[in-house]
Write a protein that binds this DNA or RNA. Structure first.
Length: 279
DNA sequence: ACCTGACCTCGTCT
DNA sequence: AAGACGAGGTCAG
């Protein structure tokens, strides 16, 4: 709680967790489900929404200290000491990462903007126009043809089915939060279009499972580059079984905050390669 | 059980 | 300027 002043908003927004954020006149405006969040230079610690979103309930010093036992992570944390993991609106997070498969950040952002514009509620704030993230019901009842107009390609049917699953109660986020990590991941993977990587993103970024470690191309690259002794990763993509084996070893190595480790390593490596973030 | 290929679309790079 | 390339995966055979 006491080190909230350390939060680096830019680094946090630009770490591939969220996509519906824009900066106007040095203020960030973002959509989190049914809410519009506004962030100035410093966090307004009074707002409950902001506290929840930035996970002020986490003992950040303790987490950093624990992860710093690993030298590579320590360096990444040193470079981005104010980056946090965000606690997002679960439905938005769920759709966001389903839509992220085999794509890059500008692409993902465009798709989500179009979805919001087409199916989300319009709001005017500070004289600017915003669209809230669509409600599950709205997406569930949307036609395949209309969803497809948002440039989702083959992910169209994933989104439709995933929204229906939530709308009909097959997927219930508050129940998932109560399950342990692996049970919750198995549940999410039942949804058409959600594999282990996407499930891990949803769990880490919206369902409080800090031991979730999304193993994407970047993380695999990082493991090859810096952890050839600890984890033998040789391929660009991995099978389901390798995913689980690797995940077990990673949690063993980093501990229960492994998800935070992943985020620091990911951010650091992407910055090395100057990948694009949000505008 | 593993492995491989196909997959939509779009921004970027030639 | 048109064409190729690849991007934070998943599913099906």
């Amino acid at each position: 709680m006491k080190d909230n002043f350390e939060v680096n908003i830019d680094d946090t927004i630009n770490s591939g967790q969220v996509f519906l954020w824009k900066k106007f006149n040095s203020k960030w405006y973002g959509i989190n489900g049914e809410k519009i969040l506004i962030l100035g230079d410093k966090l307004n610690g009074k707002s409950k929404d902001i506290q929840k979103f930035f996970r002020f309930d986490d003992d950040f010093q303790k987490i950093k200290k624990q992860l710093s036992k690993d030298n590579v992570a320590k360096k990444a944390i040193g470079n981005f000491p104010g980056m946090r993991i965000l606690r997002q609106d679960p439905f938005q997070c769920y759709i966001s990462f389903i839509v992220s498969s085999n794509s890059n950040i500008p692409n993902i952002q465009t798709r989500l903007q179009k979805l919001s514009q087409k199916f989300g509620e319009k709001k005017i704030l500070h004289g600017k126009e915003f669209f809230l993230f669509p409600k599950p019901e709205k997406l569930a009842n949307a036609s395949i043809a209309n969803i497809a107009k948002c440039g989702l390609g083959y992910r169209t049917k994933y989104v439709k089915k995933a929204a229906v699953a939530v709308n009909e109660g097959m997927v219930d986020f508050s129940s998932l939060k109560k399950l342990d990590y692996l049970e919750a991941r198995n549940e999410l993977c039942q949804v058409f279009g959600i594999g282990k990587k996407v499930a891990d993103c949803i769990l880490l970024f919206s369902l409080d499972k800090l031991e979730a470690v999304p193993l994407d191309r970047w993380v695999l690259r990082i493991l090859q580059k810096y952890y050839s002794k600890e984890f033998q990763v040789t391929t660009k993509t991995i099978t389901d079984k390798t995913y689980d084996n690797l995940h077990d070893k990673i949690v063993e190595h980093f501990g229960k905050y492994a998800g935070y480790a992943q985020q620091f390593l990911f951010k650091n490596e992407r910055e090395n390669f100057e990948k694009k973030w949000l505008g």
